[in-house]
Amino acid sequence: MNEGVKEVITPKKNLLDINLKEIWSYRDLLVLFVRRDFVAVYKQTILGPMWFVIQPIFTTLIFTLIFGKLASIPTDGLPQILFYMCGITCWNYFAECLNKTSNTFVANANIFGKVYFPRLILPISIIISNLLKFGIQFLLFLVFLVYFYWNGYNVQPNYHMFLLPYLLFLMAGLGLGFGILISSLTTKYRDFQFLLIFGVQLFMYATPIVYPLSLAKEKLGSYSWVTLANPMTSVIETFKFAFLGRGEFSWFNIGYSTLFMLILLFLGTLTFNKVEQTFMDTV
């Protein structure tokens, strides 16, 4: 019996007191939550995990029709389907992480209200389970990529694709950072939830998903700072550059996104840490 483990519960704890060791000791729970998120999504469906694939395919088709054919937005000379699918695959991961983590407290109040475990486990599990989903969608993208490559289209995958893990790390960090910040802010006042619903949509248009960055710089002129200041821009552009050979890649932009993510994650963890102690009283 580990009677030596003494714990003191007091009204406030130190803001920076993030117990990583405790999170590590709950890693089994993390695995189970990931499993739960992943498995529970397609229970009682016929197509099951197929839905993970159907969604990006249809979005790509619609984007190709609307932005490619109707609006004739150029795609840096890349095949339209590949161009859109590339952006959508990345963006989906980030947006899903953000959407799902942003209602951690509200959606799980029922578990949180009954039992203690390190609250951060839940948002982290969401990031990981979405990674699996991203994996499936990324494979789909690779299938298309290989097909277009063999058929002689002008795509040049290059060694930058080894940056993929780092890009994922950036997206996960950004999604998690924004998500836990918003979830902490929405426990008492739900205003931010309404902001989030259309905020994510607007955010997508401020990111070069349906248009290349080069076009934004050319056409938007002095307004293009919105796109440049967006930490997701460099992630998407690097991704495109690595797998399709077109787009803008610069270490400076990656560095900017990294710094942005670190600050965001820090602020997010801080607020989350503060809110998790008593959020059950106000949620």
Binding site: E7, I9, T10, P11, Y116, T278, M280, D281
Partner: peptide, 10 residues
């Protein structure tokens, strides 16, 4: 599940 307003529990 939630924290006390004052005092401590060990």
């Amino acid at each position: 599940v939630t924290k006390p307003s004052t005092g401590s529990i060990t």
